[in-house]
C-alpha cells in the first residue's frame, strides 16, 4: 500500500514525535509512504477567512500534486484531513470553481482532475490494514490501561466531505484500543473540539474546552487519552497546565498520538515513540500498569 504522505506542519515541527512514530509504525504495517516534500500548508481552514479561492487554489495544488504522483494522500492530522477533503468536495461539486482553480494551477503546470482520495492514518489503519492485522502485530498488549479515545472534530465533520465514519457514533479508535489490549473509556466529549483554533485568539475559551474534555474523560475512569491529531495533542498535552488552572483542577492526563500507542503496543520502545517529548509524562501510568 503506497500513499502520498502529507504530514502537516505540526508534525514537522512542534509534534515531531508524531511524525517519527508514524514512520516507524508505517514500516511495521507495510505502508509505503512517499512524503510530499513540495506540498504547502493546508492553512488549517484560515485561508477561508482570507479568501475562499485562495483556500481552494493552495489546497488544489496539494491535491493535484498527489494526482500527479498517482497516489492517495495520507495525513496524520485531523485538520489537514478535513481541510483537504473539504476543498476536494467543493472542487468536485462546483465546475465553475474548479475551472477557476485550474486556471490558476495552469500557471504552475498543474491540474486538478478530481480523482484523488484523502485519507487519515486512522482510516488507513482500520480500512486498509485491518484490525486483525493490528492485533497480530501486538507484542506488548497494554493490559488494563484505561484509554479515552479523543476523536476530535475534523476527522468526523463535515461528514459529507470527510466521508469517514458515523460522526455521532465513531468506533475506529475504540476498536484499535481494544486491538492493542487496552480498555476504551467512553466519555461525553470524545467527538468534540479541543479548541486548537482559539489558542492564540481567545485562549481562555480554548483552555476551558481542553479542561472539559480531560475532566470528562477522567471522570469516567480514563487514565490516558489517545488522539489521531497533533493539533489536539498540542492542546491536550502542552496546554494542559493552563487548562487545569482554568477549570481549577490539577490535571495529570498523559495523551498519546495514535501512532505512538500503536507502535508502543507493537514493541517499539518509549524512546522510539518519543514519549519524553510530552509535557505530561505517561511514565507513572505505564509503570503502574507494568508496561515500563
Amino acid at each position: 500500500m503506497r500513499f502520498a504522505f502529507y504530514p502537516g506542519c505540526a508534525a514537522l515541527a512542534i509534534a515531531k514525535e508524531a511524525y517519527r512514530s508514524t514512520l516507524l509504525l508505517a514500516e511495521r504495517l507495510g505502508l509505503e509512504l512517499v512524503e510530499m516534500v513540495r506540498a504547502n500548508c493546508c492553512g488549517a481552514g484560515l485561508f477561508n477567512d482570507k479568501n475562499r479561492e485562495l483556500n481552494l487554489t493552495l489546497n488544489g495544488r496539494t491535491l493535484a500534486q498527489a494526482e500527479e504522483m498517482g497516489l492517495p494522500i495520507m495525513t496524520i492530522c485531523n485538520t489537514c484531513f478535513m481541510v483537504l477533503n473539504r476543498a476536494r468536495a467543493e472542487l468536485d461539486r462546483d465546475d465553475y470553481l474548479r475551472d477557476k482553480v485550474n486556471h490558476h494551477l495552469a500557471r504552475i503546470g498543474l491540474r486538478y482532475r478530481g480523482e484523488v482520495k484523502v485519507k487519515h492514518l486512522l482510516q488507513v489503519v482500520v480500512e486498509d490494514v485491518g484490525i486483525d492485522r493490528v492485533k497480530g502485530l501486538v507484542r506488548r498488549p497494554l493490559r488494563r490501561l484505561q484509554v479515552g479515545a479523543f476523536y476530535g472534530c475534523h476527522i468526523l465533520r463535515p461528514s459529507e466531505a470527510v466521508a469517514f465514519e458515523d460522526p455521532d457514533r465513531p468506533r475506529s479508535l475504540d476498536d484499535l484500543i481494544l486491538a492493542i489490549g487496552a480498555e476504551p473509556v467512553d466519555y461525553e466529549g470524545r467527538t468534540k473540539c479541543c479548541g486548537f483554533q482559539l489558542d492564540l485568539v481567545s485562549p481562555h475559551l480554548a483552555y476551558r474546552m481542553i479542561g472539559k474534555r480531560i475532566m470528562e474523560c477522567r471522570d469516567r475512569g480514563g487514565e490516558t487519552m489517545i488522539t489521531g491529531c497533533p493539533l489536539c495533542h498540542i492542546n491536550l498535552d502542552s496546554y494542559q497546565g493552563y487548562a487545569g488552572k482554568e477549570v481549577g483542577f490539577k490535571l495529570d492526563m498523559p495523551t498519546f498520538h495514535l501512532s505512538q500507542l500503536l507502535g508502543f503496543a507493537m514493541g517499539f520502545s518509549e524512546e522510539e515513540m518519543g514519549f519524553a517529548k510530552h509535557l505530561v509524562s505517561p511514565e507513572r501510568v505505564l509503570k503502574d500498569r507494568g508496561l515500563l
Binding site: 472534530c153 465533520r157 468534540k192 473540539c193 486548537f196 483554533q197 485568539v201 481567545s202 475559551l205
Partner: peptide, 16 residues
C-alpha cells in the same frame, strides 16, 4: 469584538 466571529473554534457542529 469579544464574543464575536473570531471566537468560533471551527468545530463544524453547526454545519453538520
Amino acid at each position: 469584538g469579544p464574543h464575536g466571529i473570531w471566537d468560533c473554534s471551527r468545530c463544524v457542529m453547526c454545519n453538520e
